[in-house]
Design a protein around this nucleic acid. Structure first.
Lengths: 344, 344
DNA sequence: TTGTAAGCGTTATCAG
DNA sequence: CTGATAACGCTTACAA
């Protein structure tokens, strides 16, 4: 009978009408506002809310408060455990604070990152996390940098979890040192000829890891190489191992720029009848679940922490100037795919 | 000088002012509205938009159009490749249509799913995808079902990618048949004693897979077992294998309820000096990247398709009644971890 | 303690 | 072809 007015299903207006109070009062009790409300009224509102199934419109709220409670994370590929673990870190702390986590796959392509970034800006994401590394001298980086700058001007927090060419606070690991430490460990095991499979060409992370490897070799007075092309995938790891098998003599050890690469290589090696670690030691980098599952030596990068720390920062809104950088510790994780030279 | 009025940075209002047109006109050109606009005006608006860096507020737009362009996906754990691949499918087709994909980790706990669902409703997600399976006779299912019902009443599309106790369209695979086919394959290879490691207790997916295995055994006149407890994790797969090793005699073959479980088992087996597939054949289920990386026999479930199909349905808004179910095909994928009985 | 009303940035209706 | 103006659902001074 009295049903044909306006309030939408589950809206504040409906609750207010039900409870016979103003929309403002209803809002006050439903938002633990500090504004005083009579106990009796509060109760009526609460009941009405329950009755009509009140569900606050986060959209409307975001519009007026200018806080969307949305965090965007731009990853290369959510299926890659590297990015999945980061995302998990973000979502865990985000959800606990009532934030939404939006994942955007960019396939490591700058122009896609750009596109995703635009959408995130449109949705007034409070923070955007660039999970992946950038490219050295990326021509497309210009435009992205501009976008990031604009986002910051609009109050968004932009963070990156790897080296990037645009200005923004970073949460990273020292890839160079990580690769150095791993190589050094292999050397300490008595290995002399240590091969390396690279990451995607041009990526800062790839370059840094390669540099760390080269530095450790040089410092030990060892000649580096062979070095193979790679792109963080199983397939290229596999291919590199095949090429290695075709070469003169098998090296003492092999390092892949990430875990997946090394697993591809190990598989090829084993299929060719090579025993690991007896015939050759193999190690990866990152320590994703893959490494653990295959009991592979690697160096741990605190992925989950990356995400958790980033989310925390976005939520608390402390963006300490645009230029700071926090370096999280990496850690060598020796497992069964490496052993002392001439292995037991 | 004339700077101290109101329009926000990058807003329509600002563009309109810059271009010297009404906000309505600006909106029209910036939204490929069918409404006619003079070419000259259009150009001015476009230029102004470019100049001020116009970025439409998706939030405001969503509020008025009642379309948020947000898709939520509730997963057990985004790090699990099972869910990651589904999410990738959703995001790929979603992004192409300008949709945002929100991931919510629920750790397979109904009460967390409920909580996540609430947030998604608050944000007026156009669609919600329940990626994981539900529990048989779940007491907490009641409340979730109510929530889902309410969501649907509000126009949201709710889909599930596995068996669920609430009413909603489903996109699934026949888990029973998948397990049956795999078991049958092993039998055809000459195996007689085939062990099975279960999935998480009470999950429909677990039950169905177990049933398929049991049915195939029975139909072949074989006595099933041993059957071990499991929960889709590497650790329990590993533990089950250990227990199996402690038993009298090794079975001919072993099936894990998912890939990760089987990999855990294989690792334990190999560490104990057991050769796969010579001493025992091992197979998993799902065909995640893990299976491919370890060259393990498994049965493929089209995860990416699950996501893609679900997203497509949400976007096009064709939710064909609440009760339909589309069954996607599974496919046996024989690889190197299984071989004919007494294998070469 | 409660209500009124002015936005938040869009879209959409209806006049000019 | 263009411009007011009323929503959308909510928060928040400002009044009462």
């Amino acid at each position: 009978m009295s049903e044909r007015s306006k309030p939408a299903k589950g809206s504040l207006a409906e609750v207010a009408r039900q409870a016979g109070v103003s929309i403002a009062t209803a809002s006050r009790v439903l938002n633990q506002s500090s504004h005083p409300v009579a106990e009796a009224t509060r109760k009526r509102v609460l009941e009405a809310a329950e009755a009509v199934g009140y569900s606050p419109s986060a959209l409307a709220r975001a519009l007026v408060t200018q806080r969307s409670r949305i965090i965007g994370v731009i990853v290369g590929d959510i299926v890659d455990p590297y990015f999945a673990e980061i995302t998990r870190g973000i979502e865990d702390v985000g959800a606990k604070a009532g934030y939404l986590t939006i994942v955007c796959n960019a396939d490591r392509r700058t122009e896609l990152e750009e596109e995703q970034m635009r959408v995130l800006v449109d949705y007034h994401a409070e923070g955007v996390v660039f999970a992946g590394s950038g490219y050295v001298n990326d021509p497309k980086g210009e435009e992205l940098a501009r976008l990031v700058e604009r986002a910051r001007e609009r109050g968004m927090t932009v963070l990156s979890l790897a080296h990037r060419d645009f200005e923004c606070p970073r949460i990273v690991v020292d890839n160079r040192a990580a690769a150095y430490d791993l190589t050094d460990y292999l050397i300490s095991l008595g290995h002399r000829r240590i091969a390396f499979i690279k990451g995607p060409a041009g990526l800062y992370a790839s370059e840094h890891r390669l540099e760390g490897y080269l530095a450790a070799m040089e410092e030990a007075g060892l000649e580096p190489g062979p070095v193979f092309e790679g792109d963080f995938t199983y397939d290229l790891g596999h291919a590199a191992a095949l090429r290695m098998l075709g070469g003169a003599e098998l090296p003492d050890a092999l390092i892949g720029a990430n875990d997946e690469t090394s697993i591809g290589a190990m598989t090829a090696l084993r299929q060719a009848g090579v025993s690991i670690p007896e015939d050759i030691s193999v190690a990866g980098m990152t320590d994703t679940r893959l490494a653990r599952f295959t009991d592979m030596t690697t160096v741990n990068i605190p992925l989950y922490q990356f995400g958790a720390v980033a989310a925390r920062r976005i939520i608390t809104g402390e963006s300490d100037g645009a230029g700071d950088e926090v370096v999280l510790p990496h850690r060598l994780v020796p497992r069964s795919t490496t052993t002392r030279r001439g292995g037991r």
